[in-house]
Every structure is written in structure tokens, then in C-alpha cells.
């Protein structure tokens, strides 16, 4: 207020006003100041209130509920009333072959998705960049982005239909080439290739958008001077485009590693069956079966806590590394 230029009033008046402001600024306690501020800006707080309440009720209250991971939870006693039992659930979990198998499967499936899934969108973006025919490019992009918007239930339905032993196209083709029909979805050794392949098929196109945006930011002068030097398109792709988008690639890689544990378990729930649990069951599907289907809430919550803490550490580490590397952190 006092720093604003005043259009009216004498010097004396200004001094009085200033003195009053100064007094008012010094006198009131912190609480009173906040009170005044809220009184003036109450509308802003009213706008914020629903969101904050929602977060407290639907996301922070469950965090309080996580304590059942250390309790012998019973529905009748509730979260607060159930007795503490320390780390018993964690001991049970780490002695449970199914849980250990779920951890192993989570790591393996994430690893495959990373190795095979990460390069695909980069390759696609580089390929799109080399297309000169605009209509072809636009049409192809429209089509490869599409699977991203289709629900996992439908994708699973398509996979189940296509791999079906009686009518599926995959087995039909296999038989053309003299192979024998395989009931793919009951075979543990086929689960991971099918799951990882489906994920790549669904997301690679859409994920290429980020890299296309990075490529669009590469300075045209680099290409112009390369053309003058007689570089081929292949050389320009390797020597200019790829190095220019390397920072984006590295940041995406860090994000990806940070989200390692986020295997799309919705899709696994749709595609797996007891016959393939051996290779398909991940931590989140284990939690779903034990907790929501089996009613062992406390044990499943302990598994979930373990998962969330590891994921949190991964994300935070990823952010720190990316901060150091690029000086622009992810958030």
C-alpha cells in the first residue's frame, strides 16, 4: 500500500498514512494478520476449500488408514481401534512365496517393458520426422495414436479374441505355416511377451509425441549447414536429430525408471488366469487378490505400503538425478 504512488493529498497526509500503516504493520500478531488477509481474500480460500477437503477425505485419510499394515485389522474395531502387531505382516509377506514371486514378476515385466518399449517411440518419432509426404504423415499419426485412447478392457478383449485357440487370427496364421494351435493365454511362457507386446502396441505411437515435439525444436540452421556439407538424411538423423533430442530421451528414461513399479496391473487382471500366475502375478494383482477378493486387508495394505515406499524412493531419486543432469527437474 505505502509503496503505491499517491495521486492526491499533501506530504503531511502521506506521512500520517505511512505512519499509520507502519504501526498497523508492526502491531498485529501473525494470526491477526492472517485473519485480516483471509477476511479480504476469503473468496480465494472458498475456491480452494473443496479441493483441499477432497484431498484430505479421499487421499490423505487413506494414508492415515495405512497404519493397518502394522495392525491386526478387524472391520468391527476399525482403523484406530485395531491392536498394533508391529512388523508381523511384513514378516509374513517376506516369507510368502507368492509375494516374493510377485516382486520378481513386477521387476521382470517392468524390465522387459523398458528394454523393448522405451526405444520404440523414439524410433517412431525419428521415422515420422523423415516423412515428407504430409498427408501420409498425418494419417499414420492419427492411426498410431488411436490405441492409446481405447480402454484396457477392450484391448484385453481384442487380445483374447486374436489369441483364442479356436477362432483367433494368430492361431489361424500359425496353422497356415504348418504350426500347431497354441492356447497362448494359458501358457506361462507366453504371458510376458503378449503383455509387453500389447503395451508397446498400445502406447508407442502416442508416446512418440514428446519426441516429435523435441525434434520440432531442433534449429533448422544445423540441417542447412549439414546439407551444404553434403550430408545424407541418414547421417543427419544420426549426427543432428538424435544428439539434439538426447536430453529429452534421458529425461523420459529417468521418468520411466522412476515409474518402474507402475506395471499396468489393470491389464494384467484382465489377461492373467491361475494357469499363468507363475509369470504374470505382480505386486498390485497380489494385493487385489489378497485384499479385495480375499479380505485380508491388513496384509494386503502392508504389501501396498511396501510398494508405495519403493515407488516413492524411485521417483524421488529419479527427480534428483534429473535435476542434476538437466537443471530442470520434473517438477
Amino acid at each position: 500500500m505505502i509503496n503505491e504512488p499517491q495521486l492526491h493529498g499533501s506530504k503531511t497526509e502521506e506521512l500520517i498514512v505511512e505512519a499509520g500503516e507502519a504501526l498497523r504493520r508492526r502491531k498485529p500478531s501473525r494470526m491477526v494478520r492472517i485473519g485480516d488477509h483471509v477476511k479480504r481474500e476469503w473468496q480465494l480460500y472458498l475456491m480452494l476449500l473443496p479441493t483441499i477437503l477432497w484431498l484430505l477425505i479421499f487421499l490423505y485419510k487413506p494414508m492415515y488408514g495405512l497404519q493397518i499394515a502394522f495392525k491386526d485389522y478387524s472391520i468391527f474395531r476399525g482403523v484406530a481401534g485395531s491392536p498394533w502387531i508391529g512388523l508381523e505382516h511384513f514378516q509374513t509377506l517376506f516369507g510368502n512365496d507368492q509375494f516374493l514371486r510377485a516382486i520378481k514378476n513386477t521387476v521382470i515385466i517392468s524390465f522387459y517393458s523398458l528394454i523393448f518399449g522405451f526405444p520404440m517411440p523414439i524410433i517412431l518419432a525419428l521415422m515420422f520426422n523423415e516423412v515428407l509426404h504430409q498427408t501420409f504423415k498425418k494419417t499414420a499419426q492419427t492411426i498410431v495414436y488411436l490405441p492409446h485412447f481405447i480402454s484396457s478392457v477392450i484391448i484385453a478383449g481384442i487380445v483374447i479374441t486374436a489369441f483364442s485357440p479356436s477362432a483367433g487370427i494368430v492361431n489361424t496364421v500359425l496353422e497356415w505355416f504348418g504350426g500347431e494351435s497354441i492356447y497362448f493365454l494359458t501358457r506361462p511362457e507366453w504371458f510376458r511377451p503378449i503383455f509387453v507386446g500389447t503395451g508397446i502396441w498400445q502406447e508407442a505411437g502416442f508416446q512418440s509425441i514428446v519426441y516429435l515435439a523435441a525434434i520440432a525444436g531442433v534449429s533448422p540452421t544445423l540441417y542447412e549447414s549439414a546439407v551444404v556439407d553434403g550430408a545424407s538424411r541418414w547421417q543427419m538423423m544420426w549426427k543432428i536429430t538424435l544428439p539434439s533430442i538426447l536430453p529429452t530421451i534421458i529425461i523420459m528414461l529417468i521418468i520411466r525408471i522412476g515409474n518402474m513399479l507402475e506395471v499396468s496391473f489393470e491389464m494384467i487382471i484382465l489377461l492373467y488366469q491361475p494357469a499363468t500366475y507363475e509369470t504374470a502375478d505382480v505386486v498390485n494383482t497380489f494385493i487385489y487378490r489378497q485384499g479385495i477378493q480375499g479380505g485380508q486387508y491388513d496384509l494386503a495394505a502392508a504389501a501396498g505400503l511396501f510398494n508405495a515406499v519403493v515407488a516413492f524412493v524411485l521417483v524421488m531419486t529419479a527427480n534428483t538425478i534429473s535435476k542434476r543432469y538437466s537443471r530442470t527437474s520434473l517438477w
Binding site: I57, I287, G291, I292, Y297, A301
Partner: peptide
């Protein structure tokens, strides 16, 4: 918090 606490909530 994960699936279970959200569900119980």
C-alpha cells in the same frame, strides 16, 4: 496409500 486403504475409506 494404495488400493486397500482407498477401498476401506
Amino acid at each position: 496409500a494404495g488400493l486397500i486403504p482407498f477401498f476401506l475409506n
